[in-house]
Design a protein around this nucleic acid. Sequence first.
DNA 1: CACCCCGATGTGCACGTTCACATCAGCGGC
DNA 2: GCCGCTGATGTGAACGTGCACATCGGGGTG
Lengths: 362, 362
Amino acid sequence: MNVHIGVNGLAVNPETPRGRAPSIRDVARLAEVSHQTVSRVLNDHPSIRPETKERVLLAMETLQYRPNRAARALVTSRSHTIGVLAARSSEYGPATSIAAIEDAAREHGYYVNTANLADVTPEGITDALEHLMLQAIEGLVVIAPQVRVFDVLAAAPIGVPFVSLQSTGRSDHLALSVDQVTGARRATQHLVSLGHREIVHLAGPQDWIEAEARMRGFLDAIDDADLSLHPPILGDWSADFGYFAGRELSRARDFTAVFAANDQMAIGLMHAFRDAGLDVPGDISVVGFDDIPVAQHVWPPLTTVHQDFREVGRRAVALLLNQVHGREVLEVEEIVPRLVVRGSSAEASGRRPRYASVTDSA
Amino acid sequence: MNVHIGVNGLAVNPETPRGRAPSIRDVARLAEVSHQTVSRVLNDHPSIRPETKERVLLAMETLQYRPNRAARALVTSRSHTIGVLAARSSEYGPATSIAAIEDAAREHGYYVNTANLADVTPEGITDALEHLMLQAIEGLVVIAPQVRVFDVLAAAPIGVPFVSLQSTGRSDHLALSVDQVTGARRATQHLVSLGHREIVHLAGPQDWIEAEARMRGFLDAIDDADLSLHPPILGDWSADFGYFAGRELSRARDFTAVFAANDQMAIGLMHAFRDAGLDVPGDISVVGFDDIPVAQHVWPPLTTVHQDFREVGRRAVALLLNQVHGREVLEVEEIVPRLVVRGSSAEASGRRPRYASVTDSA
DNA sequence: CACCCCGATGTGCACGTTCACATCAGCGGC
DNA sequence: GCCGCTGATGTGAACGTGCACATCGGGGTG
């Protein structure tokens, strides 16, 4: 109700004409210099007498001057904004990375504008992209890890450098590759080393880059160990899907371990197994991926592959801004996620695993 | 490496002079009208002959014209951007709301700029606010639900309408109040109705508005039922804290139920109780708050209070944009979250509760 | 038939900033 | 004592758009 707080914020300053916000000319007048000198102070120009600078800064202070971003953007044609193209951004992983991107960008004096992919149709993607381009973004971070997105991106000339948080294997852009393949392989090898020979993979949706990488890691490990291959199940990342998949799986029971492509599905799986009277890890071992914060607190504590989402976001910004500024792009070292063994995986014999408590993260 | 895709995006258009992006004047020249006519087409001015409009649109198309947001913002002094001041934005609830806010804003042709609160010191808050104000935001959504934030907000005249996702009880701004008090009261009453008389509240951090509201709902219910009050434990929302709190609690064991202020802590609690050899809900009932997606898949499935975070985000934007456009602000109806009874709460006697499966959400 | 109004379009300026260039004083070197 | 350089500052234009106002033709009204 009572929301109008003056027209213009701080508004009523006697020095400032009308209801307008103070401009550099107003500051200049007060400091008795030219507007250009004020501009120089703003931009840290070297040849300004300290005394003059002082006077200008004082004038800015008394006038409560704020530089006008639009005017600056207009003349420099730099928006100081980067775009983020994201999918499913309410989930822990992406959300964490996005937050880290925003923090890192702010630290570098940049703004972030996020467009969430409502649907992954070409129209939806073009639409989101259009929105970002209208914002005149200087760079783009892509966290929408469907292959399809990159097809659209490749087709639409976006004209700004972009970085993806998923390695597509393409060379038309920079990717901040977390080595998901190795992560998935290690997870699978862990199960193999526990004596499991019939392992099922509950994968992410087809077309998702991460799902594909984790699947490949799984297949590699199965191949290395010379095991027979169960056809992977394609899920949608959700715990609910994990539950339903687990219900189906517990009918057949021709396996002793499941590697789920993310923790949510793994948790849903365990729920279903419990419902079916199967003990995890006594009857069936389960391994997840991501290490979301609750993973170590569910029962049994989930063996999973830990990813540092914040670090990924940070690096993405660093990489992107390097490109934006035309600096040399340093070699991108891959981040290898690490396996965290907890209670949901045990030897195929059915013996109890060593108990991993909450302190394993310390 | 191979990232530079032309200087300017689509760049090489013979109609466009130099390397500059096409402006309305370029379009005007090609369409053989004045730049003002082009502007009118852009802004859907009524009195334009359809034929002329057609010609202009065609010229835009061939020139791949994009309006320059900075120039427009400069002259209209409207940024078409709203700011979001957020805290802990990687968690499910806030992250979901933020995503919904972005979607809704985009639908209304607005951009969203998010500033995450690194720390809740006055400096941190001012800093984030400063960042947003530099962006010339037209409105602000606050999801940083500490009381302290509102103190700073009240002190610093932000000069734009703002909406908070938490009800502060103050009248200096609009709040989109989810009735957390009622939600918490219902959760507690549920435990009371199951015969529990010794109920502990694992609260959120002091200073958090939501923590306070949930605490009040708890206290109200305890008071109504005339039960003795256990001193609430102040947590930090995290599952890890829930675990440690649970360890402490299981020493005393002078209670039969715990109402946790969010699901993460509830899950941590259950973990600790299990470690201590206590059965949930056989020995102790646990109720959470939020209904995060995994809540129904942990063991036992968590009784909790469901909130629709997306709806909250959507409404926040609607409310805010109404204010921004000076439209009448319609009465804000409170959203009352609903209790979802699952397996983690049972009668104080220790009898097994009816089993609530995943289908309870269907 | 003169008048006015309205629809359709054009003209010039303003927005606040930076950039290119101009100015001016002081100082060292010949 | 003059030249040129350099540091410190000022001057004017430009960026791309929207707004206020001007213009012009046509049609209805008296």
